[in-house]
């Protein structure tokens, strides 16, 4: 059953069809949420909220890109979670980046333990850099460079114009670059940014 048929069935209230869509998109939604929020639990909450909201609002889906529509709900859920995280003093940055980064636990079969440790360290530094960005720049950066979406898709997800997306992405990338340059001494030589040109 293709995506359109699943969406049509879900609009008629078929939960099983909707859950097929969930299983198809849940990794993407969780990954985006995790990169925006930097917290595994908050990302899971945002993902769950995303699919619940999508199930309730699927009757309002008028067509177009289901992925963009779903990511739009996901980014809104991430903003709600960000507000909750700001009010929750227990979530310190150190706890987020050192303990709850699920990506640091995956071991690539080809990499040595040393490489795994280096990749883990790099992942934490990059995630710290993402967390320093304002939410709109962070979302745009994640959608573009983590999720690989085009400017037009990002504009559709965020509801902003393409010019705004371009501007946010430029500032976000420059800021992340500056953050990584500041962390240059901590990065392995292989990943160290070379500003010599």
């Amino acid at each position: 059953m293709d995506e359109k048929a699943l969406i049509a069935a879900a609009r008629r209230g078929d939960t099983r069809s909707f859950n097929q869509l969930v299983s198809q998109y849940q990794d993407m939604v969780y990954n985006v949420a995790f990169r925006i929020l930097g917290d595994g639990d908050a990302a899971a909450d945002a993902s769950q909220d995303t699919f619940l909201s999508a199930y309730r609002a699927i009757a309002k889906f008028k067509g177009g890109s289901f992925k963009s529509w779903l990511l739009r709900i996901a980014t809104n859920a991430c903003y709600d979670q960000l507000r909750l995280l700001q009010r929750r003093p227990t979530s310190s940055l150190e706890a987020i980046y050192t303990d709850t980064d699920p990506s640091s636990h995956f071991v690539n079969g080809r990499e040595t333990p040393e490489e795994h440790a280096l990749r883990q360290e790099l992942s934490q530094i990059i995630q710290q850099g993402i967390q320093t960005l304002p939410p709109d720049q962070r979302t745009t950066l994640v959608l573009s460079d983590v999720q690989g979406m085009s400017y037009a898709e990002i504009a559709e997800v965020t509801g902003a114009s393409i010019g705004t997306v371009k501007s946010r992405l430029s500032r976000g990338r420059a800021r992340l670059r500056d953050c990584l340059l500041e962390q240059g001494e901590l990065l392995p030589a292989r990943y160290r940014l070379k500003d010599e040109g």
């Binding site: 969930v22 990794d27 969780y30 993902s47 699919f51 699920p102």
Partner: peptide
């Protein structure tokens, strides 16, 4: 950056 898969199913009940 590696893709971080969903830790559990978010299927709707």
């Amino acid at each position: 950056l590696p893709l971080v898969p969903a830790p559990r199913s978010f299927a709707v009940r």
